[in-house]
């Protein structure tokens, strides 16, 4: 049974259809890339998956997350599902963390919530240990300092690692990464990507990776879906799609990425 099964998803607001008839599924442990230019509906699809669309959206079709229907589900049902079934890492590390909460407390929050939900007693020392091991897993240096830091005191790349640690703290079956490296510089980008794909493999999590950047998607996922103006125009294995794009649009994306890489010099 697939972990996420989206059938005929159509999202519209104010008479405009932003996503139309999108269908795909993710098996447990599968890594899927969702690619497309801005406005192609990729982030909306991700938000719909966890029932967090902005107000005023009409949702048609079906989204089954971990066996539960998301479309039309009550907020309390969704709260129970979020975290356990899916957690998210966002694009902007600047706004991904609460600016007034120390990093340690921030990471502790999902840890404590997970233990409470499991009906376990929450032991402070155990939580602190788990927070530290999570920060170690995302390869943060100088954890003693970082735990006591406010988000503004650490770098953008470090903040994104903290955000990933928070998502991991939920132990989700599906990790949704919405352009997690777009706001970072190129070297940090590669580090974060390798970190993400490593973690996903270790924990056997499924990954829904959203990006507009082909090489980035190719680095972390095995399958890819190309979205354009809210419609799926191509899907399949990453290398099959990128080596032999069937659709003109995909071809233009691939060409653009190759041209960009050539301009940068032979770095790959």
């Amino acid at each position: 049974m697939s972990l996420l099964d989206i059938r005929g998803l159509t999202l519209s607001t104010g008479g405009q259809t932003l996503v139309s008839d999108v269908s795909f599924s993710i098996a447990p442990g599968e890594r899927l890339g969702l690619i497309g230019e801005s406005g192609s509906g990729k982030s909306l699809t991700a938000l719909a998956t966890i029932g967090l669309l902005p107000r005023g959206f009409r949702v048609q079709g079906s989204i089954k997350l971990d066996g539960h229907e998301v479309v039309g589900a009550s907020e309390s049902a969704m709260i129970a599902l979020r975290g356990a079934a899916a957690a998210t890492v966002f694009q902007e590390p600047l706004t991904a963390l609460n600016p007034l909460m120390k990093v340690g407390r921030q990471v502790a929050e999902p840890v404590i919530r997970r233990h409470r939900r499991a009906g376990e007693t929450v032991d402070r020392a155990a939580v602190a240990r788990e927070v530290r091991s999570l920060l170690e897993r995302v390869s943060l240096p100088d954890i003693d300092r970082i735990v006591k830091s406010y988000p503004y005191e650490i770098s953008g790349g470090q903040r994104q690692r903290v955000a990933i640690a928070m998502a991991l703290a939920c132990r989700p079956k599906l990790l949704i990464a919405d352009e997690p490296t777009t706001a970072l510089d190129v070297t940090t980008q590669v580090e974060i990507l390798d970190l993400l794909s490593g973690l996903v493999r270790e924990d056997g999590m499924a990954l829904l990776f959203i990006s507009h950047d082909l090489p980035v998607v190719a680095r972390v996922t095995e399958n890819v879906i190309v979205l354009r103006r809210g419609e799926v125009i191509e899907q399949g294995q990453v290398h099959a799609v990128f080596d032999a794009p069937k659709h003109d649009y995909t071809r233009s994306l691939v060409d653009a990425a190759t041209a960009f890489d050539k301009a940068l010099g032979p770095s790959r």
Binding site: A80, L81, R82, G83, T88, F90, Q91, N98, R113, C170
Partner: peptide
């Protein structure tokens, strides 16, 4: 984003 992130992680509204 940090509010959305907290919500996707399953935080309840009082939290």
């Amino acid at each position: 984003d940090y509010i959305t992130a907290a919500r996707t992680a399953g935080a309840s509204w009082p939290s």
